[in-house]
């Protein structure tokens, strides 16, 4: 009934690579996803892209006043070309316009952790990146999706959607050479491994180095830990390159540690996730250290902004720690800040907010991950080829102290920070912080009503 001034929240952004597909080449930008294994491109003719082109999604904005902020990017990153649809901004693929594309009559139907999906058919075509060409490369063309961009999944082949289509399409599970595997089979790299460097949060470019390590991009020691076998088999419900997190601590500006948890849990370094999802007990312990209140709608803790300055979120992965600036996880909103750590009971992920401060080497063949603290010193490249082990990496002291699956228990045993804490999950005052970030002066809501915090005493797990 009245004008409501809404703020569009910048979801940090996503990390993409540019590829050329087909003959003649069609340009697509694909989200780099270490949490999935298939490459999908949007079919230029899919219904979602057509819908977006007609703008019907915007018909309901009549009652909103939209504001936007534009940030200039280097001229080399975005051309001045006018994009007629959001899908064409990211690049969509027209199979009929490629003389070398072949459908292989295998369907895919993949849903991700955020509920988005791609459905369509696999096919093969020429894929090129720079001066490298991969002939007859397998990927999916999505004719049903609500994602504007395609995706480049570079995880283990066991995570390919072809392994989970038996019931839906009566397809015998099989694996194909996904992108990192194809690079090796085409002789472009010696081992199916790659190093991810997202660079500083404000940087426009990072890099992914297939088949090598750049020693100039990290500081300190590069430690190796094993991928967890429970997530590496065809029977795994949630396949992926999970490793064991052994503990979590907050380190303030005086280098004083506050241990949040010494509980083992499996976690994925996922470039396709913006923030993080952690076990509820551990997330609550972190939230409590900052005096936060959990908002299930905002998927994070509402905190005083002053409490999250000059602080690091540090993870122990087995005798060594990797720390990320807590500001990477923070979204300022209204007069408070949202600490974007989602509490969950399964599927624990450290996303871009953590990965910007980490240098991660994924060794898909040896099923190991090597991790170091990222370095932003802009030193000259020092690239070493991965031919057997990862150059410069040493086995972590806690290599063999891995999380072990126990039926019914998603995490290990141990102590949380302060075994009693306050659960704020239903705190109504902050349930929709982001949605009401800048309410109109005339608006009123029940959110101003007082709420009582539910206090729950938790026992040791």
């Amino acid at each position: 009934d009245e004008v409501f001034n809404s703020t569009l929240v910048n979801a940090l952004g996503m990390y993409v690579v540019k590829l050329e597909i087909g003959t003649p080449p069609q340009t697509v930008y694909l989200q780099v996803d270490t949490g999935s294994s298939d490459m999908y491109v949007n079919d230029a003719d899919n219904a979602y892209c057509e819908l977006m082109s007609y703008g019907s999604d915007y018909a309901s904005t009549d009652n909103y006043e939209l504001t936007a902020t534009f940030t200039e990017l280097p001229s080399s990153t975005i051309s001045s070309e006018a994009y007629t649809t959001l899908c064409s901004y990211w690049g969509a693929f027209s199979a009929s316009n490629s003389s070398t594309f072949k459908y292989n009559d295998t369907h895919f139907d993949e849903t991700y952790g955020d509920g988005t999906y791609y459905k369509g058919t696999y096919g093969t075509d020429v894929v090129s990146l720079g001066n490298i060409t991969l002939e007859s490369f397998s990927f999916g063309v999505a004719n049903s999706t609500e994602n504007q961009a395609g995706i480049l999944g570079i995880s283990l082949p066991v995570g390919e959607n072809t392994d989970s289509l038996e019931n839906a399409y009566n397809i015998t599970p099989f694996e194909y050479k996904n992108f990192p595997m194809a690079l090796k089979s085409h002789g472009k790299i010696e081992k199916t491994a790659y190093s991810l460097f997202l660079n500083e949060p404000d940087a426009h470019f990072g890099s992914i180095l297939f088949g090598a390590v750049d020693k100039s991009k990290y500081s300190g020691q590069l430690y190796t830990v094993p991928m967890l076998q429970a997530f590496n088999t065809i029977d795994s419900l949630n396949p992926g390159m999970f490793v064991t997190a052994q503990g979590v601590a907050i380190v303030d500006s005086d280098s004083k540690n506050k241990t949040a948890s010494e509980v083992q849990f499996p976690v994925l370094f996922d470039s396709g996730t913006t923030y993080s999802t952690l076990p509820t007990g551990i997330a609550d312990a972190i939230g409590k250290i900052f005096g936060g209140k959990y908002s299930s709608v905002d998927q994070g803790y509402i905190v005083d902004c002053s409490k999250v300055n000059n602080t690091q979120l540090s993870f122990d992965f087995g005798g060594f720690n990797i720390s990320a600036n807590i500001s990477n996880f923070v979204t300022p909103a209204k007069d408070r800040c949202l600490l974007n750590i989602e509490a969950t009971d399964s599927g624990f992920v450290l996303g871009d907010a953590f990965l910007v401060d980490a240098y991660v080497v994924y060794d898909l063949e040896n099923r190991e991950v090597s991790i170091a603290q990222a370095s932003f010193n802009d030193q000259e490249e020092d690239i070493k080829i991965i031919s057997d082990g990862v150059p410069g990496a040493t086995t972590a002291p806690g290599y063999y102290s891995t999380w072990v699956y126990t039926p019914g228990s998603p995490i290990g045993t141990g102590d949380f920070y302060n075994i009693s804490w306050t659960s704020y999950s239903e705190n109504s005052e902050y349930q929709t912080l982001i949605a009401t970030a800048i309410p109109s002066s005339s608006s009123s809501s029940s959110s101003s009503s007082s709420s009582s915090d539910e206090t729950t005493t938790k026992n040791r797990n």
């Binding site: 952004g13 540019k18 780099v32 999935s36 990153t77 990146l129 504007q148 460097f197 913006t274 974007n340």
Partner: peptide
């Protein structure tokens, strides 16, 4: 040279106007 280096470009996510909240764009 036995390695392939790809620049990874950080692009702003265009919010999906059809979605019901920010939660839809937080994780994949």
């Amino acid at each position: 040279n036995s390695y392939v280096k790809l620049p990874v470009q950080k692009l702003a996510n265009i919010p999906d106007m059809d979605s019901q909240g920010a939660s839809d764009i937080f994780k994949r």
